[in-house]
Amino acid sequence: MLDFVQQLVSGVALGCVYGLIALGFVLVYKATEVVNFAQGDLMMLGGFFAFTFIGMMGLNYWLGFAGAVAAMALFGMVAERVVVRPILGYPQFSIIMVTIGLGYFLRSVAGMIWGTDDLKIDTPFSQGVLRMGSLVLAYDKLSVIAATMILCTLLWLFFNKTMLGTAMRASSENMLAAYYMGIPVKRVVSVVWAISAAVATCAGVLLAPITFIHSNVGLVLGLKAFPAAVLGGFGSIPGAVVGGVLIGVIESMAGFYLPEGGRTSRPTSCCSPCCS
């Protein structure tokens, strides 16, 4: 039973990270009907930024965290402006290819700059554990869960209760009509990319103590977060997180209870039928 709870918690924590990446997919998709295949790589880049600020420049954890989020938000905006905006409104396939290209580029460049080794960020939660009776839960995992919950609430409020959020939903339904109604569609799209890059960075930094940061982490986790977004219906913020948690828990449980071999099961495979 104890084992089960512990596996459950670490599954949920891992799932939250998937959920956060999936959230990035969903945000961009909700606002522009574009699937950003570079989402995982944005997360990877965020992790590297945080590593640079905290591990290399020796900044305080929270300061470095905030710095990385801000830097990535800016990066998201720039990426949108340079790469996606010129072809917004063209066939979806072009846009998908552009984001795949962006992902390739980010992965290689990150590999050139930070090398191909695994990097680790020291966090305030890295060491401690929470003891409840004989149950031992690591702080780093709990922190991921807490942070995800906070972020989701914020985003949900933002989308449903603010003017900007409403504008985003409008421009996703019909871009031209939204434009005619005076919504600054271009700026809206910029903001969405900034937010999704920021969310990805949070995922990257939170992930750092659990898995290490390396240049391919984005691709691997992106492929796992993708079905999470699909499971959640690709348009719903809570759905993405629930989907992520589901996949995280399945993976964690399978790793513990199934014999060797079933562990690396590709979640993508089981999710494809439900996307019709």
Partner: peptide
């Protein structure tokens, strides 16, 4: 001789072609 040069070139090529040479 940087490691990921091929990947980076792929990435840039994809982006440039979609943007400028559809």
């Amino acid at each position: 001789s940087l490691n990921g040069l091929k990947g980076a070139i792929y990435g840039i090529i994809i982006v440039l072609f979609v943007l400028f040479e559809p």
